[in-house]
Design a protein around this nucleic acid. Structure first.
Length: 584
RNA sequence: GGAGCCGUAGUUCAACUGGUUAGAGCACCGGCCUGUCACGCCGGAAGUUGCGGGUUCGAAUCCCGUCGGCCCCGCCA
């Protein structure tokens, strides 16, 4: 074959006259009867090739046959385009290659969708022919960003003394947390490995093993239901350090993220990242991952509405709940229909209803405004309202009111386009509760994971008031996306045992499931902690996409299937027999 | 586990209230065209209306079931 001497993205006017060979895919052919133009594409760009009848009949016969996505080699020379044919939309638009020989390396069948226009195929079709979608400019860009991000992360940690150490993919299944993907053992019939939900225990063991700065870009697996930003297998930037505290991890992670944003998209993140305690995040934003690119904060109004005479508010306050509100700039224009839609949505989030008042030049306006007469000024002032705004109230138990308003805040902000684009606002959320009560299981479960330590002053409360214990945990949030989270771990067997106790894990079970870790903690485990960042989500932010499948070369559907190869598939009876497995 | 939206030519969509031979753009095939770059013009081929059942004189359309995709809730330490 004719092997390329240059790529399709690099020729410029300075190369005029050079004899070259290009390899690539036919992006688009334009047959003018005499002259035939086509654009040749590879990962590096697009170059126009022109075929002139003066170069011979056989050349024109081949050029005539070309169609989209044929793989070809073109030998020819570079020449300037005529002035009136320069294409300023193309980086190579000043030149073209006059073909002298075209070799069709492999013709393409009729395509299920156009590689030049991703929208010509619905997503299931694009996933079936993923290798074609990989040729699209969008996916090429996303995977380039992913590559650069990975390299930036690696070089940052490596330069800072971190070792990249691989941990097993076949590990022990553990209780707590997500459902495991299981792998049957042939040698030990009836026993199973699990694929890691994260390398959590291994990285702690690496600390105990003396590798005091570790990182890894690593696949993790969780068998849970999926979302637009969740895949069954995903990638984490996993980090652990010894002899450190929260500030060290946060400082180090900030530096890393700044480096990556700088390297990959040339964006400077504002340092230091602001920090917010979990309780404030919930009260002000109704979320543990607030999007702080815009305001519309939640305001608690109990004190003003205690005696307002509106029964709905009154009874909620009397029973210990919260009445809170957001003030939506420009929301006074909301029609009855929009407000009804918002009400429906908020009911779906567990709230009983939505009250509203519009702020006009003449005061408050709506069905409930008459109850607010005496406190009108205070309320408007508290929520920061001005004429043209709408105040949306939710009254319910606090655990309903704030999250509902938090979601409402995001919904109306999207609707009114209040969220600044191409802006990055990182935020640390700190002082999470260590535990939350699981109503179904009737026990406390770890909010982060069972290896997270309590702040020292709360340690005694583990036995008396577990729900009030604050964890040494922190999440990094960017633009309302949880990008990562971590904690300072329990590094003594006593601390870890206390945690297992409060989780209701018996001594026997703790020994059976985590005996190796408890043992390891007895042999001089250093104080340690770390963080894990969702690499796919980070790349989504860098690439500006809402869909995790855009940043993964071979993603699965929201039902965890691969449409390209059809996995998961049944396996043969022989395979099952060898594993000692029977399908029920 | 639950809710919503979607499934018609290779593909993206259309087809009124259930009614003639299921249409159009792009792609594909053929013809014409020497400066195109969304090339243009003329012509052609292309359909198990996801699948199964039901209602009806008649179903892409209505009903039931099922499969698949997307999105959301639960879930995801």
């Amino acid at each position: 074959m004719l092997k390329r001497t240059v790529t399709c993205g690099e020729l410029t006017a300075e190369d005029t006259g050079k004899k070259i060979v290009l390899n690539g895919w036919v992006n688009k052919r334009r047959d003018l009867g005499g002259l035939i133009f086509f654009d040749l594409r590879d990962r590096y760009g697009l170059t126009q090739v022109v075929c002139d009848p003066e170069k011979g009949k056989s050349l024109m016969n081949i050029a005539h046959k070309l169609s989209a996505e044929d793989v070809v080699a073109v030998r020819g020379y570079v020449r300037l385009r005529p002035d009136d044919a320069i294409n300023n939309d193309m980086p190579t638009g000043k030149i073209e290659v006059l073909a002298e020989e075209i070799e069709i390396l492999n013709p393409a069948a009729t395509l299920p969708f156009l590689v030049t226009d991703r929208e010509t195929g619905l997503e299931d079709l694009r996933l079936k022919y993923r290798y074609l979608e990989l040729r699209t400019a969008e996916i090429q860009k996303c995977l380039a960003i992913r590559h650069h991000a990975a390299q930036s992360v690696r070089s940052f940690y490596s330069k800072n003394g971190f070792f990249e150490i691989e941990t097993p993919m076949l590990m022990k299944s553990t209780p707590e947390g997500a459902r495991d993907y299981l792998v049957p053992s042939r040698i030990y019939k009836g026993r199973f490995y699990a694929l890691p939900q994260s390398p959590q225990t291994y990285k702690q063991l690496l600390m105990i093993g003396g590798f005091d700065r570790y990182f890894q870009i690593v696949k993790c697996f969780r068998d849970e239901d999926l979302r637009a930003d969740r895949q069954p297998e995903f990638t984490q930037i996993d980090v652990e350090m010894s002899f450190i505290d929260e500030d060290d991890i946060m400082e180090n992670t900030e530096t890393m993220l700044c480096r990556v944003f700088q390297d990959v998209i040339n964006v400077e993140l504002p340092r230091p990242f602001p920090r917010m305690e979990y309780s404030d995040a919930m009260r002000r934003f109704g979320s543990d991952k607030p999007d702080i690119r815009f305001g519309v904060e939640i305001h608690t109004l109990n004190t003003f509405l205690q005696n307002c005479g509106f029964r709905v508010f009154q009874s909620v306050i009397d029973s210990g709940g919260s009445v809170a509100a957001i003030c939506v700039p420009g929301g006074a224009g909301f029609s009855r229909k929009i407000i009804d839609e918002l009400t429906e949505q908020i009911k779906g989030w567990g709230a009983k209803g939505l009250a509203f008042v519009k702020i006009t030049e003449n005061g408050l306006e709506s069905g409930v405004s008459k109850f607010l007469n005496s406190v009108e000024k205070e309320i408007v002032q508290t929520v920061g309202g001005k004429p043209g705004d709408i105040i949306l109230f939710v009254a319910d138990e606090s655990r309903v009111t704030y999250p509902a308003l938090g979601r409402l805040r995001l919904t109306v902000a999207k609707r009114l386009d209040l969220i600044p684009k191409r802006q990055f606002k990182p935020l640390w959320v700190t002082r999470f509760p260590l535990l939350e009560y699981d109503e179904e299981e009737k026990r406390y479960v770890a909010m982060h994971h069972p290896f997270t330590s309590a702040i020292p002053e709360d340690r005694a409360k583990l036995k008396t008031d577990p729900g009030a214990v604050i964890a040494r945990a922190y999440d990094i949030v960017i633009n309302g996306n949880e990008i990562g989270g971590g904690s300072i771990r329990n590094h003594t067997p006593e601390m870890q045992q206390e945690m297992f106790d409060v989780l209701g894990i018996s001594r026997e079970e703790a020994r059976a499931k985590f005996g190796f870790l408890l043992d390891a903690l007895t042999f001089g485990a250093p104080p340690h902690g770390g963080i894990a960042l969702g690499f796919d989500r980070l790349v989504m932010l860098l690439a500006g996409t809402e869909n995790i499948r855009d940043v993964i070369a071979f993603p699965k559907t929201t039902s965890a299937a691969s449409l390209m190869d059809g996995s998961p598939t049944p396996v043969s009876g022989d395979q099952l027999k060898e594993l000692g497995i029977k399908i029920v």
